[in-house]
Computed example of a mutant assay.
Amino acid sequence: MIRVLVVDDERMVCAHLRTILGSASDLTIVGEAYDGADAVEAAVRLRPDVVLMDLRMPGVDGIRATERIMTLPSPPRVLALTTFDLDDYVTGALRAGAAGFLLKSTSPDDLLALVRVAAAGHTVLSAVAADRLVAQTAGSQRARDLLLSLTEREVEVLESLGAGRSNQQIARRLHLSEATVKGYVSRLLVKLGCANRTQAALLAQEAGLSAGRSAPQP
């Protein structure tokens, strides 16, 4: 029997999950919690195998609750439950030790199957979430690959575009004339296949550029 703890600040969501999970003969709901602090206490007291953890809760949110649960001697598998896919909350939950995440729109059959997969020790992503994650990873890799065609100075200019700086601000930062910066920006747009500064800025952020980073080497 797989023991499941349901955590959500909306009691109607908990009731919905209880109905779905209660329909399976191999799953049992050992408890509910309505905020992150209660979730940690319940995980200690009830010793579930799987925790379905809402991320956006008042007080102690799902990320901090997951972090605390992961410090237990034999922590359960935590699955983040979210209405949003691949936002900062989801990323934070995965970094905190969550075994995966599910959209609240996941179908009942998929939910039951993925809880079982998580209990068996595997990483879990709902079908929609998996597609999004693959797309995001591919996009990020493409952005990083494009940086290989740039000089170190071009990467510095691109980083500044990603930070939202104007040509004048970039010129001051890199000790260049505005005309020189304008030339760099024009060449960057051509090299990167971007139609405008906004697209270049988004690509810089997608590639994970940060201040002071030099051009990647092939």
Rank of each mutant, 00 (worst) to 15 (best):
I2Y: 07
C14V: 11
C14W: 00
H16I: 06
G22T: 01
S25W: 08
D26M: 09
D35N: 13
G36F: 01
G36I: 03
V44R: 15
R45K: 09
V51T: 00
L52Q: 06
M53G: 09
L55A: 05
L55V: 01
M57D: 05
P58N: 11
G59A: 11
I63T: 06
R68E: 15
R68H: 14
L72A: 09
L72F: 02
R77S: 10
A93N: 02
A93K: 02
A96W: 00
G100Y: 00
T106Y: 00
P108L: 05
V117C: 12
A120K: 04
A120G: 12
H122F: 09
V124R: 01
T137D: 14
A138H: 13
S140A: 15
L146E: 15
E152W: 07
E154W: 05
V155H: 12
E156M: 14
S160V: 05
Q168E: 15
A171M: 09
L174D: 04
H175C: 10
H175F: 05
S177I: 03
T180D: 05
G183K: 07
Y184N: 15
S186P: 05
S186M: 09
L189W: 07
V190G: 13
G193T: 04
Q205C: 00
E206H: 06
E206A: 13
G208V: 02
A211F: 02
G212I: 01
